[in-house]
Amino acid sequence: MIQTILDALSYGGLYGLAALGIGLVFGVMRLVNFAHGELIAIGAYLLIVTIDLGLPISIGIAVTGTAILALLMEFSVFKRLRLAEPSVLLIASFGVSVFLQRLYEVIFGALPLSGQIAPWMTGVIEFGDTTITRGSVVTIGLALVLLGGMWFFIEKTTLGLQIRAASSDFHTARLLGVRSNRVIGAAFVFSGVLAAAVAFVLVTQRGSVDPLFGVNITILALVGTVIGGLGSLQGAALGGFAVGTTISLLNSFLGNYRIYTYTWLFILVIIVLLVRPGGLISNKAVKERV
């Protein structure tokens, strides 16, 4: 029972991190970045390829590499589409996503690449009669630290304040002197860092990475972002958390019927978009920039 709850919390934390990464970029430029999954995938690839250098160095490389790729996306593609409508951005990010998937296939091959990243995470901890997995505890800890760090950055720093302002009204933020490219670049960098954290947890659990590694979690995190409220950062993180815990609990309790979890989740997405376009958690509406 305790393990079930811990699993739910760790899934929630993981999906919360992924959803926050998507929500950050959405906030400042109204881009739903399908290619967030490929940021997670490159993080996992970098971890597996460089793990022989030792875990700290490997993590450093993965975080840096993922952040750089996020910035590269912004500079090479999205920066050139500043005036485009959100739906055009959506197609472009779909294109970037497929482009990177195929690029990984060309570089690393279509087959999964295996590696042990942090074997100590797979063990269990015993408390008298109950045992819990180390992985879930570490994931929860990591999620708490990162969400706390992001909260501090967003709420307490000047750049964080500028990101919040740009997320709610980009136009006015610029009139006050907020540098649009700097804020958008920062959002991409932080979404990259969050993607690397998600990659670390996922690749430790699965022990391998393939070109489509990040697709599933991105699609589900997207659900969380919509349910939580596009454009609201707390909403995104909470929405992701809700989706993660729900999936985990359904997996534990529903047995065979869990195969239809996606159906209910995505019907919920459509209902939210129709009835409460601002999300269930946030009270803001999805405003499209003019």
């Binding site: 304040l161 500028q162 006050l176 803001k284």
Partner: peptide, 24 residues
């Protein structure tokens, strides 16, 4: 420029709005 309709950030505090003014 103080745009039409005020365009203050309603989610932020008064102080945070003022701090944003420092950007320029």
């Amino acid at each position: 420029l103080v745009p039409e309709g005020r365009a203050i950030f309603t989610d932020l505090t008064v102080n945070e709005n003022l701090r944003l003014g420092l950007t320029g």
